[in-house]
Design a protein around this nucleic acid. Structure first.
Lengths: 186, 186
DNA sequence: GTCTATACAGCGATAGAC
DNA sequence: GTCTATCGCTGTATAGAC
């Protein structure tokens, strides 16, 4: 069921980077064409629905990352600490230590995001839920949901602040702080 | 030195809302014209430099909010707890309980942000520094800088997550949590 | 499947009447 | 100071050759 052609898969990865750096509105087909190395004809062949379909495709594409780097590790209830450490390490790598924006967060800020809103909310909601489940191990309190959503928010905010200040270290510090905070709870 | 005409001040406020909702790239002159109620001629009369000058103007405009709602309260070293409470309350109001995005954060994500990067970094840096100073009162540890930047990041991330999930309560919860966390330190 | 050529709507910006 | 009209360009999207 991987279905998609290699050409499309490569294009999706390139398109995602353009969205990350320029946002949805700022990602022109000219920029996308330059980044993918494809002409408009090829782009519309791969994505008949145009830019909106590209956004759907990049959102579908991050599912694989979430599953491998977030959901699967956190599902290991036998060793929640290891799962949390893996999630944090993968997150640090994925966002290039704060030099790469979050695609889902970027698309959440798009004014014409209605067609994507469901997927966007779905990812963040699932992230929060998976984190809460991992934390619920020994900590029976209700507060785990709130801690989990605070952690997800902290990661998003750290990316914004790192970029705004041009200080990738901000991202590193926030991630380290949260790793300790989460590990202290399991 | 308030200098600017009332017409320009009103336009700046309206332009800021368009940037908040559509981002810099997505804020077309048509949208800006509709929101301000001004034609292109008037807009270019008020902002000869076009959209870039509008962005500079809206960034200059938030200075007043920062001074009144963040810097001034936090400068009151006699009662840091009151200052923190005021800052949090003003922040809650300003972001309409999570329904209004952060203009500075939005502009930080713009690809063509180089002309604004200094002001953007300046606001976040000053916010972090002011918060750290307020926390340094009784807590002599070095960690206050890290706590302060984590708080600013948390606010930014809470706005993103609230919008992505369409759950303004996320913003309220994160703000409440941080208010308690900061007050416990002074 | 990828390209070039093109349609045409919308973009930011300017000119000039009032 | 605000408007309408218009410029030149770029935007997304399509058509059709190869």
């Amino acid at each position: 069921m991987t279905g998609a052609s290699p050409a499309r898969a490569a294009a999706v990865a390139a398109v995602a980077e353009v969205f990350r750096e320029h946002g949805y509105a700022g990602a022109s087909l000219a920029l996308i064409g330059a980044r993918t190395g494809l002409g408009k004809g090829s782009l519309y062949h791969l994505f008949p629905g145009g830019k909106a379909e590209m956004a759907q495709a990049v959102l579908d594409d991050v599912e694989a990352w979430f599953e491998a780097s977030v959901f699967a590790p956190l599902r290991d209830t036998a060793d929640p600490a290891a799962g949390l450490r893996t999630m944090m390490a993968e997150t640090r790598t994925y966002f290039r230590s704060g030099n790469r924006m979050c695609l889902v967060g970027i698309l959440a800020l798009t004014a014409e995001r209605d067609p994507f809103a469901g997927k966007i909310a779905g990812y963040f909601s699932a992230w929060r839920a998976a984190l809460a489940t991992a934390l619920r191990g020994r900590d029976g309190s209700e507060a785990v949901e709130i801690v989990a959503e605070e952690c997800v928010a902290a990661i998003q905010g750290a990316l914004i602040l790192s970029r705004a200040l041009d200080e990738p270290d901000v991202f590193e510090r926030v991630l380290s702080t949260w790793e300790q905070r989460l590990l202290a709870r399991v």
